[in-house]
Design a protein around this nucleic acid. Structure first.
Length: 182
DNA sequence: CATATGATGGACT
DNA sequence: GTCCATCATATGG
């Protein structure tokens, strides 16, 4: 078994695209109140930016933009169509950037996780986590087991957005059965 | 307080 | 691929 390393602040304080790519293959750990520990591999992510990104909710002023401007490593949760979506804020303080978690591969549990709204339900993530810091959070964090180097990354345009950027900002693990959409 | 708005999911063609 | 139920949130008065 490869060494399990917990991801720190430096990892998140970089460009959203870079973080979105490198998050693939890593393990998201969620400790529930009842003691159960859910583990899932991150298989699909999307990068979002600020004012210059027409698909980002941070292109308009408000709490979403302010949260995305915080330092890398913050958790951002917001609701749409009665689903909670979880993001990790990336970049330095002042940069409006974040990475959306779109799909997970469950490792030790059996719930639907093929989609951003489904995975938050499976992991019991809600607005309580908004603005928390993932670096030293006991209830949720990310582990690197070193499997990332064996992964082949596919690039696609983002899903469900009206206007996208010129460059694909959605990334997923090739051949994963748990990707939300090919 | 009123109301517009989806970074969705699931059902259906 | 298209349609749409549904509801927390953001924003403005």
């Amino acid at each position: 078994m490869a060494e399990m390393k917990r991801i720190g602040r430096e990892f998140f304080e970089r460009d959203a695209e870079q973080v979105a790519r490198e998050l693939l293959g890593m393990i998201l750990v969620r400790k529930l109140k009842d003691g159960r520990e859910l583990r899932a591999r991150i298989v699909e992510t999307e990068a979002y930016f600020g004012e210059e990104d027409p698909a980002s909710r941070a292109c308009k002023k408000g709490d979403l933009r302010e949260t995305m401007k915080l330092e890398g490593g913050r958790i951002l949760v917001y609701g749409v169509h009665n689903n909670w979506l979880i993001n990790f804020v990336t970049g330095k303080k002042g940069d409006a950037e974040a990475v959306l978690l779109r799909a997970l591969e469950p490792l030790n549990f059996q719930e639907k996780t093929k989609g951003p709204g489904l995975l938050t339900r499976a992991l019991e993530i809600d607005k309580m986590f908004h603005k928390k810091i993932i670096i030293d959070c006991e209830e949720i964090f990310v582990l690197d087991d070193g499997s990332q180097k064996e992964i082949e990354v596919i690039e696609r345009f983002r899903i469900g957005v009206k206007r996208d950027l010129k460059k694909p900002m959605r990334f997923y693990i090739k051949d994963s059965k748990y990707v939300s959409k090919k």
